[in-house]
Nucleic acid binder design. Structure first.
Lengths: 160, 160
DNA sequence: ATGACAGTAACGGGGCGTGAAAGTCT
DNA sequence: AAGACTTTCACGCCCCGTTACTGTCA
């Protein structure tokens, strides 16, 4: 926001790249994940990660790959898991995420159903009231049905 | 079911004991879990398991403890996890179970709410209809609602 | 006094991260 | 020709299961 900038300031560029697009070769991916390149190859051999390959056979790691590597790194380094544990934990965390999503979706669906039900109930109340004509001298009410909007004509928005 | 049994048949007894009541001392717990007794002590030192203690200080493992040991055993032996991994996986699986329970509870609650709503809706309809009475001498149709089978009475069995 | 418990310490095999060697491509 | 990639192999640390030793109690 300042007007003046140093002439030889470090230049940086930001490029938009799909997060699952492989762009980093092994040396820079290793640096980004703070790991040894050889370790990355090992992980691939174990099936923990699957970088794409250039036509020449060079590994290309995506942004997602690097993030996954960092997660693995913190599991092994900070928590002391071995690779088998990492594998299992990653799988479980995936399951857990899916379950979270399902739960959130179900909650949303339930709330929505609740609202629709309430609305339907209100509609029914109103439509019945509208068709009731005040009548004095009897305990019964009358119905004008010719043009009456049937209270139950709309049934659409509920069945799955 | 056969009438005659060998006189010296192996005798067995089945005793009811609370699954979380510590009853096995370390040697039999180890045998049940197919592990070395020392391993059990190690796991306790790591906080992976917490057998109760007799007044004398002897470890007493419950049925639950033994099951947990077997689960640990299969994680380490079959899957190759180390203890840190076991710890993490057990925690995650607990979370997952809780989430399963929550999800099931939420589904039940939603279904129940749905039924109650439907019932309420039906009540409202009926109560309004009860006030409607036949009327002849008009071009409009009539509704005897007290006992009338309403054309739209059945709404229940459709969702899902 | 034998046997199962408790605790601490040391051995040893395997997992896994690192380093080295050799080959290919630009 | 130099440098970064590829692969395979070997060293070495550390985890952890086992064994061994010692002490206590019935």
């Amino acid at each position: 926001v300042t007007a003046k900038e140093p002439r030889h300031a470090p230049r940086s560029t930001r490029v938009d790249v799909a997060v699952d697009r492989g762009v980093f070769m092994i040396s820079v991916a290793a640096e980004l994940a703070e790991m040894h390149p050889q370790t990355l190859r090992m992980y691939e051999a174990r099936g923990l990660i699957e970088p794409s390959r250039s036509p020449k056979g060079t590994r290309l790691y995506s942004q997602d790959d690097v993030e996954r590597l960092r997660r693995i790194q913190q599991m092994t380094a900070e928590l002391g898991l071995n690779l088998a544990g990492v594998e299992r934990v990653l799988a479980l965390e995936l399951e857990l995420d899916e379950m979270h999503a399902r739960l959130a979706a179900l909650e949303r669906a339930a709330e929505l159903a609740r609202l629709e039900m309430a609305a339907e109930l209100e509609r029914v109340r109103r439509s019945f009231r509208a068709e009731i004509v005040p009548y004095s001298g009897s305990t019964t009410a009358l119905v004008r049905s010719a043009d009456a909007k049937s209270p139950f004509k709309r049934r659409g928005r509920d069945a799955r």
